[in-house]
Design a protein around this nucleic acid. Structure first.
Lengths: 210, 210
DNA sequence: GGTATATCGATATACAATTATCGATATACC
DNA sequence: GGTATATCGATAATTGTATATCGATATACC
């Protein structure tokens, strides 16, 4: 239960959670790993292994208790105690993330946004105030912010990242299509759309050139 | 060169490409795998292996020719011949993607957007017309669209996906945090932000509870 | 022109993740 | 209450990915 879980498994956990909370599952009190696996296109062994690492376990013949499983998953993922975050780069993508209210469900709370362009300062985007970059360090320090979201152009990403790290940020969610250099103890999670596009594009090429 | 490349490698290729095209690399005509590895925080062996699968190879003592490498990568990734795509779901995220002009660089061209809400029909978002859902099949068929982007709420995702597949879409880029059931030959690439958040959130939890 | 060296490419090892196999256990049915 | 069965959990085999080692080769320098 305390054992460290692989990133692969970790990334599947929200998918289980999402399924368990979905309308189609509301009726069932218990779910077998086989049923879950079929609903998600996975293998039942994998489902059991994944769930074993976060949950108190299921019962033979009946399966896993849906309610308990939801609670265990949310606890493990930390969706109950909310994480405050800041976002830098109020361009198109940044604004979309600011106005997207689905993050609350995952315990993410964007408290402030920053932009290089000071003329944006003072505005609000989806209830989140946009502030000048110069205030970033101060805000992070005072509010004990641990998560930084980067939605700036590639060229600015590294310097923003450095600023975040210097301001006490411990986890960076990077939407810029570039590699970020960070100290050992900092986590960078890349949301690399170019990588996804590569997979799609290549798949189509292979379909048509073979 | 024709050998199939792992998804992991494939997803790193755009990162190499991005680095090679970056300002800081413009001056160098040749780059060693070691230099590339250091710039990206990877291991040089991995860089060589990745590049070997797409490129004609480097020269001992001097390294890889930057220009050639860029050309090979772009060819392999299909960034030269552009891929037309449609997008369904003109909400916050959908609009952000429509107005984000960075996709062109990767050969992705969104030609039309669709929304359940017919009142949006006729509008334009970033030069892309928004059309009623009923026209989707016709457009896909006439324009031979192969890529569909899903930015609708979870509950609608599967039915939109089914519609796309029925309309000839071969690759689906899914931004809804849910699993999609598709026939064998269809590729689904999930852009699962919830999964990324799980990694971040868990990282922070472990930092503070251990 | 010969030798030293940086770098590539191929083979081999180590590690992690997924999938398969087996025994254990609780429920259901007779 | 006894037996059959569905399902779990642990261990083992397979697969895939990342890292290390080694020989080959082209450039540079003497």
């Amino acid at each position: 239960m305390v054992t460290s879980v692989s990133v692969q498994t970790l990334q599947r956990l929200p998918i289980y959670l999402n399924l368990l909370k979905s309308d189609s599952m509301q009726s069932a009190a218990y779910l077998s790993s086989k049923a879950i696996a079929e609903a998600l296109g996975l293998h039942e062994i994998q489902v059991r292994k994944d769930l074993a690492s976060v949950s108190s376990g299921g019962k033979p013949k009946v399966g896993f208790c849906r309610i308990t499983l939801i609670r265990d998953l949310e606890n493990y993922l930390g969706y109950n105690d909310s994480n405050d975050a800041i976002l830098v780069g109020s361009g198109k993508l940044g604004k979309a993330l600011l106005t997207y209210d689905g993050f609350k469900e995952y315990g993410l709370n964007i408290v402030a946004a920053f932009d290089n362009d000071d003329s944006l300062a003072g505005q609000k985007e989806g209830n989140v105030p946009i502030l000048p970059l110069t205030k970033l360090s101060d805000i992070c320090d005072r509010m004990k912010i641990r998560i930084g979201i980067i939605t700036v152009p590639t060229t600015a990403a590294q310097s923003i990242c450095d600023l975040m790290v210097a301001s006490g940020i411990l986890a960076v969610w990077n939407f810029a299509p570039t590699h970020l250099d960070v100290p050992e103890h900092i986590l960078v999670k890349n949301e690399n759309m170019a990588a996804s596009l590569a997979v799609l594009s290549r798949h189509l090429m292979e379909k048509f050139t073979d």
